[in-house]
Design a protein around this nucleic acid. Structure first.
Length: 274
DNA sequence: AAGCGGTCCTGTGTGC
DNA sequence: TGCACACAGGACCGCT
């Protein structure tokens, strides 16, 4: 579910509320979500640890705690992390409740149960599955036009598949990949190495602009996504191609197409995207 | 080595 | 109405 703009929004809504608070206890109702350490040890280790800061890396949330511990969460498709008052009704699929020392709690909900939670010492962060193999952050100064052009030439895969490859660029998922390619006027099935400098340049700016607009609109709430306060985003109302199959293209009025590419639904305008 | 299909799950929408 | 099936913001695995 949540891609970079959604995870970034969760981070921004949670950090001001949680910074400086300590965990008082943790209740685990679905132990398989906890990947490391074993749930017993996880439950024993959390209490008393103070939240110093929250960071996002790709689609991962990292809670930096006292004593050099890091609580890492990946929400996958339907994970939600909501700062809740004790009187807030307990929603379905609540799998973990992190009780805070101000009486509030951070509730982890996840309909499809694909999410993952890890608690590691900071020096063991590279051992968290997927975290160490993440590619560059789209807003990292190192993500330059030259970098993108060089990498597009080097890879031999379809551009859509490359955009959602987390080891290439961290944080782009299925919705934003389709929106980026529409903004850049590039067909999703194009082989990355065939993009011209002009196209690669359009792609570079489209990646940054689309993700920035997603963040500014507090993410896209299509089915499950809400931010750390339980509120929906607005970017679903600004999508141009994702979920628009059969509807007129905002640019040329011809119907938006939907195909499957790499096993993922892919939406695009076959007239505008070459 | 890029690209599949399957896997992990539950809920929702569609078509018969 | 009821049932079966496809599909859903992700990512990993094993196989070609």
């Amino acid at each position: 579910m949540p891609e970079l703009p959604e995870v970034e929004t969760i981070k921004r809504t949670l950090e001001p509320k949680l910074k400086g608070l300590s965990f008082q206890a943790v209740e685990v109702y679905l132990p398989k979500i906890i990947r490391t350490p074993v749930p017993q040890e996880f439950i024993a280790s959390i209490p008393g640890k103070t939240i110093q800061k929250i960071e996002r890396r790709g689609k991962y949330l990292l809670f930096f705690l006292a004593e050099n511990f890091v609580l890492v969460l990946h929400l996958r498709m339907t994970g939600r992390l909501i700062y809740s008052a004790p009187e807030d009704p307990l929603g379905p699929h609540t799998h973990i409740i992190f009780h805070l020392d101000n009486g509030f709690a951070l509730r982890y909900m996840d309909t499809r149960q694909f999410g993952r939670v890890f608690l590691v010492k900071s020096e063991k962060l590279p051992l968290v599955a997927g975290l160490n193999s993440l590619g560059i952050e789209p807003f990292d100064p190192g993500f330059t036009k030259a970098f993108l052009i060089r990498e597009l030439k080097r890879r031999h895969t379809k551009i859509k598949s490359l955009l959602i490859d987390q080891s290439f660029i961290a944080g782009i998922g299925n919705i934003y990949a389709d929106e980026v390619l529409f903004r850049a006027l590039i067909h999703p099935q194009r082989q990355s190495q065939t993009l011209t400098i002009r196209e690669a340049t359009r792609l570079y700016y489209a990646i940054r602009e689309i993700l920035k607009e997603g963040i500014e609109n507090r993410g896209a709430s299509i089915k499950d996504y809400v931010n750390g306060e339980g509120n929906a985003g607005n970017y679903q109302n600004l999508l141009k191609v994702y979920g628009h199959e059969g509807k007129p293209c905002t640019r040329c009025s011809r119907p938006i197409a939907k195909i499957y590419l790499g096993g993922r639904s892919t939406h695009f305008c076959s007239t505008c995207q070459k």
